[in-house]
Design a protein around this nucleic acid. Structure first.
Lengths: 346, 346
DNA sequence: TTGAAAGCGCTAACAA
DNA sequence: TTGTTAGCGCTTTCAA
């Protein structure tokens, strides 16, 4: 069906070697031969057999991302956007992107190992880094190329891109404090996720810096889904002395929290302030539009991808570790704290 | 680094062939040899080299999906979920999933051709079928395995899974008619997309069946994003004689429409009814929760994937064309039409 | 400027 | 039960 070098060679009356070199653009092929070969290759719709080339070159020109996710369904716009960034950049460099989802755990490790050993891919993109991340340890141990989106606890010496979550949340909290809020709740994320720690730390430290007490009962942990944001925020709001502002660790939970507030007849931005993190498209188009922290996910995807490809090609990387500064996007889901509102006791 | 058959062969003092067969589980290998080989392979962390196997077997055990998308960013939960369904099912059968995004057009075709000719993948998943779909024609012409999610205008004889959009919208419109609505608007989708046609047809035909006029000015076409849903619905609502219900072609636009209504001080489900299609997770957690049509996207992903793998393996497919029946999910974004409200003239 | 030969790691037909 | 041989399609020495 699709042509091989051999077939072209027969047609042009040259050896396979010569055809190969003509196509590869080597200059030790006569102008005449080169033109002829190229033309015939074109005519025959020649496209090199990937497997053969891989076997010979010991490279697959393929990148992999294994999205750590619980449950079969996942639908976070955050990931769609990251995938688009990674995929488009990979394509620009002639690389393919292999995507799979796998829950964290032993099976996950096995999948990495298998891909490494079978030479299935040339490098990995690691997302949602964990405090102590076995994936990174495994990859380092095998000296296998990878770039992470996120840091780890012990700050190993590996290439990563991350945004400064702590700073992002600081901006959020300061914005709320300026608006007069004093009872702030936090929808935190699972503490094994590094970004969750940074965001939580940004929350508590900024409050403390402003001389405000941190009420541990106002810090609850969710699984980053809209559903949980809605449930947990609901519980928070149903308490006798509810918070006047809710700082969510991601937009999805914030959006859920908005629903919870609205279900209780509250007007978001007036009766309660809610903030997110990520700035996914729905944040802008929610009602009211969500105040959040903009994280350039698409951009991060492209940068991560570029770094990984350089690593694979053995090129120099200018900067091995990149921290991007996120920015606060003030929309209408935040507003001044209501004058007195149930402070004091209770 | 990672072991090869040859290395194992040397260690166990057998030929490469024997090792290969022992590992493959052929029964023409002595029990003793088999055990030994397996054990050594295990010890050495052997994993077959994919490229070599592909080259030999002329199969890549890889599926590809090229998501047709305009602009670099895309973030539709619909696709995340479809990807999860496809990917998980593929993994179950030992297949990998290659994901890329490419805007419709010439470059798209070239990408398909390249993957076919280079034997990069064994089959394609086609999504968002178009009325006359060049991808399907190309693939058919090359006799290359594929399964589509969606039909085409001329209903070619190819394997597909689709949901009955026409029926889905019919359920929606009948629900609204029962609630007393008479001025229904439609946020349609680009007409080259087949599902857009079915949904629009479902809209107009159901209205007609109920003896209601179809006002062409109440049918506007959007690009399926939340942003456009918001803009177009806004325009609709700002008219002198606005609709009392808006039927959107997908959830994202419906969610945008809800924001538009709320920005204008309307209470969705009371002052105006809005419906979606897809039943993506945010639909359930919006405020108010969105009345929509449930489409089992994850499930469709798994079925499509199963069919494609059977096709590739040359197995019999029971049913080449599958139409799934979607179901109406009534939530709070729809409610009775307000008594009189600006009917008559204007 | 060209070609013969080897080999990437694997599987399979055939022979022993 | 095992091994020899060939070959998948390509790239890359090395020699001519």
């Amino acid at each position: 069906m699709s042509a091989t070098l051999k077939e072209i060679a027969q047609r042009v009356g040259r050896s396979v070697t010569t055809v190969s070199r003509a196509l590869a653009g080597y200059d030790d092929v006569s102008e005449e031969t080169r033109t002829l070969v190229r033309q015939v290759a074109q005519e025959m719709g020649y496209e090199p057999n990937i497997a053969a080339r891989q076997l010979q070159k010991q490279r697959s020109d393929t990148l992999a991302i294994i999205v750590p996710t619980f449950g079969p369904r996942f639908s976070d716009p955050f990931f769609s956007e990251l995938l688009a960034g990674l995929g488009n950049e990979a394509a620009r460099h002639g690389f393919d992107l292999l995507v799979s989802t796998r829950p964290p755990g032993d099976d996950e490790q096995a999948t990495y190992l298998k891909n490494i050993r079978s030479r299935r891919v040339d490098g990995f993109i690691i997302v949602r880094t964990r405090a102590r991340d076995p994936r990174i340890e495994l990859l380092q141990q095998h000296r296998f190329p990878f770039v992470a989106f996120g840091r780890t606890e012990n700050e190993l010496n590996y290439p990563y891109v991350d945004e400064d979550s702590e700073h992002g949340i600081r901006l959020v909290v300061e914005h709320l404090v300026q608006l007069g809020h004093t009872r702030l709740a936090c929808l935190a994320a699972p503490p094994e996720l590094m970004f969750a720690r940074y965001r939580l730390r940004g929350f508590t430290e900024t409050l403390q810096r402003h001389g405000m007490a941190v009420d541990p009962s106002l810090i609850v942990t969710g699984d980053l889904t809209q559903r949980q944001g809605r449930e947990l925020a609901g519980q928070l709001l149903d308490r006798p002395n509810p918070p006047t502002a809710i700082v969510a660790s991601n937009d999805l939970m914030a959006l859920g929290a908005m629903s919870a507030a609205q279900e209780r007849g509250l007007t978001v931005g007036r009766d309660i302030s809610i903030t997110g993190f990520d700035d996914i498209p729905p944040a802008e188009h929610a009602h009211p539009p969500l105040t959040t922290v903009n994280q350039p996910v698409y951009k991060i995807g492209t940068v991560v991808c570029q770094m990984l490809i350089k690593l694979i090609l053995g090129q120099e990387i200018e900067q091995q570790q990149i921290i991007m500064q996120p920015s606060l996007v003030i929309r209408q889901s935040t507003g001044p704290a209501k004058p007195s509102e149930g402070r004091s006791d209770q």
